[in-house]
């Protein structure tokens, strides 16, 4: 099949960027979307044009490195699928496909389709962990975790940190990402000791980088792991409670 790619090219954050059009002919519908970019890049190098920079690594939809806007949709048209797992059989031969980087103030552009998502690491550093020094853990079966709680915590923990939720959000909010991590830890018995401090700290660092949630729900649709926005409700409830609980804990 043949496709036309309109790809955002930008040398760096301080240089204006623009779309460039590339015809990519003779590809197979068994190929993944990123393999088409590979083929394009091979041809560009041969023709003497600098290849398109894009982040990618595992190509199994788990590392969260890849992610571009494809025709205005984060990770493209297939639900619950990261860009690397999107295959060309989802496109018509002859179609024009627009490819852009994540666009959000919290993700400054680096080059072409590559953005800087280190703000996500800052949110995790603010409290996305359970404090347990190596060696100090009790036996793993000491604390039973009801299966439903464990399963729901897992659903949240499945987040791959790709940033599609932010890219899809009209407000560039990172609530789904932050809520997923907070919920994963707050739903487990092991996470209770730091529950309220974690929630307050993570939400507040999130707000330094990202916009506010206004319940559009775009994030859930864009999420390659189909993480539910119900977790945002859990986070909001915990945040509200944290404002009281954290004070009460101090008063004790």
């Amino acid at each position: 099949m043949n496709v036309t790619l309109q790809i955002w090219r930008q040398e760096g954050p301080d240089v204006p960027g623009s779309f460039k059009t590339y015809e990519v002919a003779g590809i197979s519908e068994e190929m993944s979307f990123l393999e088409v970019l590979d083929v394009l890049n091979e041809r560009l190098v041969t023709q003497g044009e600098e290849p398109v920079a894009f982040d990618h690594d595992c190509r199994e939809g788990i590392c969260g490195s890849c992610g571009v806007m494809i025709d205005g949709q984060a990770h493209g048209p297939q639900l619950g699928t990261a860009t690397c797992q999107l295959h060309m059989r989802k496109f018509e031969s002859g179609s024009t496909i627009t490819v852009e980087p994540w666009r959000a103030a919290g993700f400054p552009l680096v080059k072409d389709l590559v953005v800087d998502r280190s703000s996500f690491d800052r949110i995790i550093e603010a409290g996305g962990y359970i404090t347990v020094d190596t060696g100090s853990a009790p036996d793993a079966n000491l604390t039973p975790v009801p299966k439903p709680a464990a399963d729901i915590a897992f659903d949240a923990a499945a987040c791959i940190g790709c940033g599609a939720c932010v890219a899809a959000c009209p407000n560039s909010a990172a609530n789904l990402f932050t809520a997923a991590k907070i919920s994963h830890l707050n739903l487990l018995p092991q996470g209770q000791a730091e529950r309220w401090a974690r929630t307050e700290n993570m939400v507040e660092v999130m707000e330094e980088y990202f916009g506010s949630c206004t319940n559009h729900g775009e994030c859930e649709k864009a999420c390659p792991k189909s993480i539910s926005i119900d977790f945002i409700a859990i986070m909001n409830a915990d945040y509200l409670k944290a404002k009281v609980k954290n004070r009460r804990l101090v008063a004790q």
Partner: peptide, 17 residues
């Protein structure tokens, strides 16, 4: 033990273990 204490959501039986 370490991973469980960190909140790694290993698969569990219905009894929670």
């Amino acid at each position: 033990d370490q991973a469980t204490a960190q909140g790694v959501p290993f698969a569990r039986e219905y009894g929670g273990l």
